[in-house]
Design a protein around this nucleic acid. Structure first.
Lengths: 153, 153
DNA sequence: TTCAAATAGGACTAAAATAGTCCTCTTTTC
DNA sequence: GAAAAGAGGACTATTTTAGTCCTATTTGAA
């Protein structure tokens, strides 16, 4: 349930690698060999991330990619949006209210609120957190109420 | 991103309908006609939900389905687990730690913790919450633009 | 000034997950 | 015993996702 795509998962590895490389442009090929992910796939990921301004590209010889800003200012939500598109938790909620079952459907809005809660949480998790193994578990809220979340287990 | 499947969405409609019917067994056909979802699909959903003990079935003539307990004690997480299987946010985290990139992968645990937090949030949302239709529908926006996505059908 | 190293972008294919349908069997009521 | 229901599984079609490849463009440096 609620799974991020494999590509997004790879995306975080790629970004983590760029983060390690610091500010000088790193080529897709270097990232590929450092992460073990195939070059065509890495290239595709980096292109998508560049389009979303999560990374910046430099073309030409000695070119490559680097993070568009520090890892502490890149959120998990941005990465997911860049790689999967900003879609919502249910299909119909993404269209406003265009769905065949509209007349009888009355459950939409709670899913939307759940979605919002999840997005908010993902916005609070940065690439830095994703890299650091022991960051605190994010706090979730639903309908304005904090939802209690356990610490590690 | 992070979308529940259409079947799960339908599942909540089906459950909402059963909840409205109260405690007497309601046939899949009745649910289908009340919700506008196809009968074969409704049957499949109810069978899965019965297997997970979210609904209880009565066989034979005048049989049907009813909720296994009050709507306030059925969580969104249970419904998702029943219809999509209990999987995690990333592929590798679902298998323990079997992934080709294991040696170079150091981002796993934060996703796992995000996953835990999301599950926790979904466990706190009940079918009752999902049915209550009116709460202000938050306009969903990203980077200032309302998000819509996805093709029409 | 030309070559090689890069990214940009899109088209395409293959594989996997999802959705939906259908058929047959069993259980139960009337 | 007939009809109304669920159980279960097999199957097909569709959609999504992943991954590859080709060509064009940009840039640095010999």
């Amino acid at each position: 349930m609620l799974r991020i795509s494999r590509l997004t998962d790879y995306g975080t590895l790629v970004l983590a690698q760029l983060s390690r490389e610091g500010d000088c442009p790193t080529s897709a090929a270097e990232v590929a060999s450092a992460t073990g992910i195939g070059l065509p796939t890495v290239s595709k990921l980096l292109r998508l991330l560049a389009k979303a301004d999560v990374v910046r590209s430099t073309r030409g010889a000695r070119g490559g990619y680097r993070l568009a800003r520090p890892a502490s200012r890149i959120s998990a939500a941005e990465v997911i949006d860049a790689l999967e598109g900003p879609v919502s938790i249910t299909e119909c909620s993404a269209h406003g209210s265009h769905c065949d079952l509209e007349a009888v459907c009355n459950v939409g809005s709670a899913w939307q609120r759940i979605n919002l809660a999840i997005r908010r949480a993902l916005s609070d998790v940065t690439l830095n957190d994703l890299q650091r193994a022991n960051a605190p578990v994010p706090r979730f809220e639903f309908a304005g109420m904090p939802i209690h979340v356990e610490r590690d287990r």
